Amino acid sequence: MKAQGMCAKPFEAVKQAFEDMFDDPQERGAGLCVQVGGEMVVDLWAGMADQEGTRPWTRDTLANTFCVVKPYVAVAVLMLVEEGKLELDAPVARYWPEFAQNGKAKVTLRQVMNHTAGLPALRAPDHNAMMYDWEHMLRVLEAEPLWWEPGTDLGYGTTTFGWILGELIRRVDGRDPCAFIHEKILDPHDLDVHLGVDEKHFHRIARFDSAIGRVGDPYSQALRTVLKSEPAHIATFAFTNPGMVPRRTSDPRWWAYRQPAVCGHGTAHGLAGFYSALLAGNFIGRELLSEFTREHSHGMDRVWMRPMRYGLGCMLEQQVDPTASHAMGPDTFGHIGLGGPISFADPERHVSFGFVTTTSGSHTMIDPRPGLLSSLVYAAL
């Protein structure tokens, strides 16, 4: 399938690989953007935005990005740290006193951001019915006991990350966290990323679905087995209570959902543009950017059930695990989303990368599709 858009000559192999993705008849639609030093070198899209194959993908098609947006709320928090409104090593309860219940008084903002807080998941009962009610979910978090002593173990805060950081933004700034991110980060740089899509943009949203036969790497297969067979496992609670699943993405409530760590919709150029702006010195100063991207935690993550490295709200390069590598430099940082979307930056080469898709695979880290594309980008630099 021929891709639309532009591709600088040194990156022709990237374009070819992007077009070759669509040799698989299950592949519906996707977008890819690469920027080097803030300059667009690849901006491609192809396929269809609906499951019936009647609506062509365009440059402004919005794709579900799931957790790709976690670094956005992390950077928003760091902006407030820079303003002196938050402190990384202060207890969350300093700003949100009700959070201190059930042993959480000593949990720090830094521990939440590096996924060592001991609150990666919510236990039973089932919270899916109330997940769209922000105030209700805050009460649940306030009452939730820790899974372990803060700072002693590693577990990805799938949904809890967004509620905790979002509420801290609201408490010290007064704005809804997604409004803060739009007003301070997205809108000033014309980034086509939406944390809660306005109804007037609903027609731009591509339909998301799973592909058959893409089983994923061994870590992904082991995690999927646990999710299907162990209802009381911490990973099962983290990913299903409430659940961030493909079937939810056809629901207009999900499109409009304002949860700043699990629900984003965007274009590939919007995602890449965020990292280009960040590397160019926007949002936070050099000192906090270094703090954001340095390793704060690593080890076997109890939720992902695989080795992970984290900064303060971003995932760091995993060169020891080829199925989790960005295929670029050792200081690469960014974030993946369920089913294939990803965005990241290589600060050494000033590269920003964004990939969106509506065809969900089963890899829990970097999907082979963007993994191949990023390796070809790296080879062309």
Rank of each mutant, 00 (worst) to 15 (best):
Q111G: 11
V351H: 00
T54L: 08
P246I: 00
R294Q: 14
T364W: 11
G38L: 12
T152W: 14
M48H: 12
H189W: 08
I234D: 15
G311W: 12
D321R: 03
N114D: 15
S352C: 04
D346W: 04
T358Y: 00
M315S: 10
L119C: 09
M315C: 05
A90T: 09
R170Y: 15
A63K: 00
D367H: 05
E230F: 11
A211Y: 06
K184S: 07
D133N: 04
A235P: 08
K228C: 13
Y378W: 09
A49W: 02
W304C: 12
I284V: 13
E199I: 05
R94F: 10
F11V: 03
I336Y: 13
R110F: 10
L191Q: 03
R253T: 11
R286A: 08
G334W: 06
E287W: 07
D251N: 15
D321G: 00
F22T: 00
E199R: 13
Q111T: 13
W57I: 14
Q51M: 07
N114F: 10
A74I: 12
P218S: 06
L376G: 02
A277Q: 14
R294C: 05
L381K: 08
A143H: 09
A238Q: 06
D89A: 09
I169D: 05
L289S: 08
C314H: 09
V351T: 00
P25D: 11
P341I: 00
A235S: 15
D133L: 10
L279S: 14
G29D: 05
D192T: 05
T323E: 15
G174T: 05
E348Q: 12
G354V: 01
A211C: 12
F274G: 14
L165N: 05
R123T: 07
A280L: 04
G273E: 00
T364E: 12
L86S: 03
A206T: 02
Y378G: 14
D321A: 00
L109F: 11
K70C: 02
L376F: 05
I234M: 14
Q4P: 01
R170D: 05
D50T: 06
E287H: 07
D50M: 04
V68C: 10
R171E: 02
M48T: 04
R224D: 08
G162A: 05
R369E: 08
A76L: 07
H298D: 08
G371R: 10
F283M: 07
F274V: 07
G31N: 02
W163Q: 12
S374E: 05
F353T: 01
P177F: 03
T160Q: 08
D176L: 10
M131Q: 15
G38N: 04
L376Q: 02
L165C: 07
N102P: 01
D50R: 01
V377D: 04
S276P: 06
T323H: 10
E27N: 09
